[in-house]
Write a protein that binds this DNA or RNA. Structure first.
Lengths: 305, 305
DNA sequence: TTTTTAATATAAGTTAAACTTATGGATAAA
DNA sequence: TTTATCCATAAGTTTAACTTATATTAAAAA
């Protein structure tokens, strides 16, 4: 076997850098650091004793030898991808790794997963919580459900729904404070949650046409929406929340939406996955189920109360 | 980029194992351990979630999927090798790594290398000594000069010469012991050197037609032939040595060959290198010089005194 | 039939490669 | 001129690739 193939791992960085003629863009595509790309290209050039890139200001242009090698590497990689496709298409049965934010996971998704398991017992869903948008192309994660406006152009993005965001409080708070108009809301403790897709109370006051006098209001900041909702259910104040995470509680009478005023625009929830994933069959099973669950819960793409 | 290409490094082991349908043969070809091959194949199978080999007694037969992937991998690797060939042929100038035994290196090769450097100043020769036959295909070593009969079928082997092996001693020893016939040799201390291509005194006695009475003889065992030769020059006994390593000393009168009796067959010295090496131009410069040096020293392929 | 040999599988540990963060230098853009 | 962007490099960290040791199993030899 050709001993130069010992350094075959370096060719991934080469292919990405050659495609972009930029190490940092290559690094982004591969989800590694620019320095790693730089070092790997240097190593490859040393192993082969061939200069593959030439610096042009900030750009790294391919040498003619670099272009030649790029052609061969791209063809070889295409063959390998095709070979993988021929031997593998994962069956529907197996593991599926799902990533989403902590609040959506704990309040909405996980409590419903028993229904998915009942319908698809051969698929094992593993839920990974993260505050960030995780890379579903270059990690072992298969599907992301993200709130907020960030999208990842390298994978398939599907808007699941745009959820209205409004204040919620306990029924007791309304009774004890005789809460009847938006102007009175400033007299209660306002709860602000950090985390993905954070909402702005300023935004809500603007929409409601009420002046927000911060210095005279009582604030409570919590690190997750779940904590905010728990505080509200304990009677402790008013919290802004997306409908999907509180609708069950409102239906059950544990929470109340005191005013029919929503933040505009609402909160986007997006589904992301890699269309080239060998687990595509499994991903699509999950995706169909998820959309059905949302429809059953009366949650559609642009739901305005 | 296809995320499955992250595990491209595993494909080397796969290709070798698929070729041999044997992990240990693959390990030998790749100059790594069987356990490494086993673990890499297992890792690849897990990553792809495809069974590539099936156990058949001691053999590892390819599954049909394994055969499919083998075809693609072999084609891809051929493309990569061709790509490397197109962009690289190392110039004559550069580093050349040469491996040989300690005695040949120190006594013969290194003292002559100044002549190589004078003729080819752009080639830097680095000499690595080793008691074993090193792999010049799967290491950074480019050329091996080996004594003994072991050859490496994976690379080019060229017999340089077959050197006669005979006893040598100091002129003083002959004078002090009135050494005049082979039968008297047993009265002197016999020096035996370990190391590559070790020679047998039994063999010499057989050739000389003299009975060897081990229990009545005085033995000294040293770990390198160089040490043996140094002891002999100090007057300490008689040592078997190949001609190339002692001919200069005999010519200079520092050593004597007391009897014109050589061990049969003599000692093979073989040149080994990888014909696919990108340093082939450099290797061939060295090879031509080496053969010329041997010829100038009157050493040819089958030299019988 | 028993014993020995040969081959792979696995665990634990080690080494080397692949990565990160931090920082500097150079160029391009404001 | 200053700021921003990009790659290069050093030092350190993490992970993958390797090793050695040992167990298991099947094949070959006695």
């Amino acid at each position: 076997m050709d001993k130069r193939l010992r350094h075959i791992g370096l060719l991934r960085c080469f292919a990405a850098a050659a495609k972009h003629q930029s190490y940092s863009d290559a690094a982004e595509e591969l989800a590694i650091s620019q320095a790693a790309v730089s070092q790997q290209i240097r190593s490859l050039e040393q192993q082969l004793m061939v200069k593959l890139f030439k610096r042009n200001g900030r750009a790294m242009l391919l040498t003619s030898q670099g272009k030649t090698l790029q052609d061969y590497v791209n063809k070889a990689f295409s063959l390998l991808s095709e070979g993988f496709d021929r031997v593998q298409v994962e069956p529907e049965a197996g593991v599926l790794n799902v990533t989403t934010g902590l609040s959506f996971a704990s309040i909405w998704l996980v409590p419903r997963l028993w229904r998915f398991s009942a319908l698809h017992p051969s698929v094992t869903v593993k839920v990974f919580v993260s505050a960030e948008l995780e890379n579903v192309k270059h990690s072992e994660l298969d599907v992301a459900i993200r709130q907020g406006d960030k999208i990842d152009h390298t994978v398939y993005n599907e808007l699941l729904f745009t959820d209205p965001v409004f204040p919620v409080c306990s029924p007791n708070l309304i009774k004890n404070n005789n809460l009847s108009s938006p102007q009175q809301i400033g007299c209660c403790q306002l709860i602000e949650a950090s985390g993905p897709g954070r909402f702005s109370w300023q935004n809500w006051f603007d929409t409601a046409g009420v002046a927000m006098q911060s210095s005279q209001m009582s604030w409570l900041e919590v690190s997750t929406l779940e904590m905010g909702i728990n505080a509200v259910m304990a009677g402790q104040g008013i919290c802004l929340a997306p409908k999907c995470l509180v609708s069950d509680l409102i239906t059950n009478g544990l929470l109340v939406k005191p005013f029919n005023i929503n933040i505009e625009p609402g909160q986007n929830f997006t589904l992301l996955y890699d269309q080239d994933s060998p687990r595509l069959a499994r991903i699509q099973i999950f995706s169909r189920w998820l959309k059905q669950e949302l429809a059953d819960a009366g949650i559609t793409k642009a739901l305005l109360d």
